[in-house]
Nucleic acid binder design. Structure first.
Lengths: 210, 210
DNA sequence: CTTTGCGCTAACAAAATTGTTAGTCTAATC
DNA sequence: GATTAGACTAACAATTTTGTTAGCGCAAAG
């Protein structure tokens, strides 16, 4: 044994998790290595001992988060054998739920990752491959349905941008959106539940024949 | 005359414009007063001479930008005597254009303003008043049209969130969105033009009877 | 022609933040 | 029992960044 287990995990992990919180909340420039160390319950020398520099620690967190972007796409792919409408509904809902349980991920990506050309390059090398296979499958299926007169022939790329925009923005701008709508909802969770339904409806309506 | 007019404006204004660019691009924590001074073409002591502290200079920029948020709403209100569909089309297009010519405003608001509780409070005291008058007018009009069977009875609040989400997100996440869609478009401007049409269609489709 | 006020500069001071180093303690290894 | 290695600490060093101050030059006012 030897080690005190009053702290839940090993030092390196605790620093990583504290860094994750600090970086996601304040960004690279706003984060303080001393705060990270304090939150992790270690001296700030330990942070340098394990990760050498603030930059290296940050890169570690960034690569974790960029990988999550792959997950977000894969997790949103629905059951292959459901009818198109159900499958899209499921995808939108899963995507919404993913964002809902990673609420500061989008802001982090938009601010910290996109601000650095090298990170944009990493993403441009990884994301389009996954997205384009997703898109071509989706587009093929839409075209099949459309050929049978079962739905509108819509552009899958635009549909994807719609889904992501509708699902992500309300979380990024949560205080404004919820604040501006004032007292129309009991609480934020109620607003989110309504919003989720609404987004599904908005997307599906684009496919419906009228 | 006396003054050299090699520099276009007076010192205070040049510092303000340089600060605006620096803060919008890098955020408060990432901005450097020395960079701002250099960009303005003055010694960094001048920055403190005119604005005392980095904080005060930042607040000045923040209030400018928060005021623009009022404009964004007012500018989007269309002609009162157009039919509903045309008016909404016009509003969505104006909003899109506004964001398009202030592309880093949303990111700045979301990151820098929302990160500070005092700014959120300022906005919560000012925005809801404007928004709720806009919303109640819009809702009344929608209800009238719906009563005559001319459109769906939709929730104006949700419609507003839809519009803002669809219009703003693609600009905030521009490198990803445009990057992930790869080579499907000639250039970014073409993508934007298509996107603008698409957003109008998406919104109007929510109102259409089917 | 002296004074006053203002824009301005250069040099300096203070604070905050990151990064280093010498050395301690402990546990395993020879 | 001496040796080694790795986790760790306290103190310090270096750098970056913000903020200050004493004073110069010039134009307008008295």
């Amino acid at each position: 044994m030897g080690k005190e287990y009053s702290q839940s995990q090993d030092t390196e992990t605790r620093i990583l998790r504290a860094a994750e919180r600090e970086f996601l909340e304040k960004g690279f420039a706003g984060a303080r290595t001393a705060s990270i160390a304090e939150a992790a319950g270690v001296t700030h020398a330990m942070l340098h001992y394990y990760f050498r520099t603030k930059d290296k620690l940050f890169e570690r967190i960034v690569s974790e988060k960029i990988n999550m972007l792959g997950d977000i796409i894969l997790s949103a792919i629905g059951d292959d054998n459901l009818p198109l409408e159900e499958r899209i509904r499921q995808s939108v809902e899963r995507h919404f739920d993913f964002i809902s349980s990673n609420r500061d991920l989008p802001r982090f990506i938009v601010n910290e990752v996109l601000a650095r050309p090298e990170h944009v390059d990493i993403m441009k090398r990884n994301i389009p491959a996954i997205v384009s296979s997703l898109l071509s499958n989706l587009q093929r299926e839409i075209d099949e349905y459309a050929a049978r007169g079962l739905c509108q022939r819509v552009d899958a790329r635009m549909l994807l941008v719609d889904i992501v925009s509708l699902n992500v923005f309300p979380f990024m701008a949560a205080p404004i959106v919820y604040g501006a709508l004032g007292d129309a909802y009991k609480d934020y969770d109620e607003f989110l539940a309504i919003r989720k339904k609404e987004n599904v409806e908005t997307i599906l309506r684009k496919l419906k024949i009228h």
